[in-house]
């Protein structure tokens, strides 16, 4: 069957509910899914944050001290470390006054990937090219 492309669309703010975080952890699971697939089969997720989903992504989070849980920031950095495509809608960042500079990177972990701040038209392309679209 080869590769199956999936779009994980996060529309809810981080920390408000659980599912916006579960979108991230489920997407990261693409790293280990091959143990359950036939040789040559893969799942390629793209993690897209749109609407209110762009809230709670900024760097400098202190969730472990405040809530006793790992932060969304650390999850996003792990995504970048495992070469997961992370796209954030530029129009929605602008709407909420969030600068691109405030988003985390994983340079300190040695990641090559960066968060991609893109116009919604690019996210629309991800929706079009994906076999399955999952809204969180």
């Amino acid at each position: 069957m080869g590769d199956v492309k999936c779009a994980f669309i996060v529309q809810k703010p981080q920390y408000k509910g659980e599912t916006s975080r579960l979108a991230i952890t489920h997407a990261i699971a693409y790293q280990t899914v091959e143990i359950l697939l036939e040789d040559g089969d893969t799942v390629t997720p793209k993690l897209c944050f749109i609407g209110e989903g762009v809230l709670g992504l900024q760097k400098g989070q202190n969730a472990m001290d405040v809530y006793g849980i790992t932060s969304t920031e650390s999850h996003v950095k792990n995504c970048l470390l495992v070469d997961l495509n992370v796209l954030v809608c530029k129009e929605d960042l602008d709407k909420y006054g969030i600068s691109e500079d405030s988003l985390p990177d994983a340079d300190d972990m040695g990641a090559d990937m960066k968060i991609q701040v893109v116009p919604f038209s690019e996210i629309q392309k991800v929706l079009d090219e994906s076999q399955h679209v999952l809204f969180f």
Binding site: C6, G17, T25, L36, L37, L134
Partner: peptide, 22 residues
């Protein structure tokens, strides 16, 4: 199982329905 079980089932599926939480 772990979350990769879901991804493996997605891989095999003709259709996926994601029913979100709160």
């Amino acid at each position: 199982n772990a979350m990769h079980w879901y991804l493996a089932k997605i891989h095999a599926a003709d259709r996926v329905l994601q029913i979100g939480g709160e």
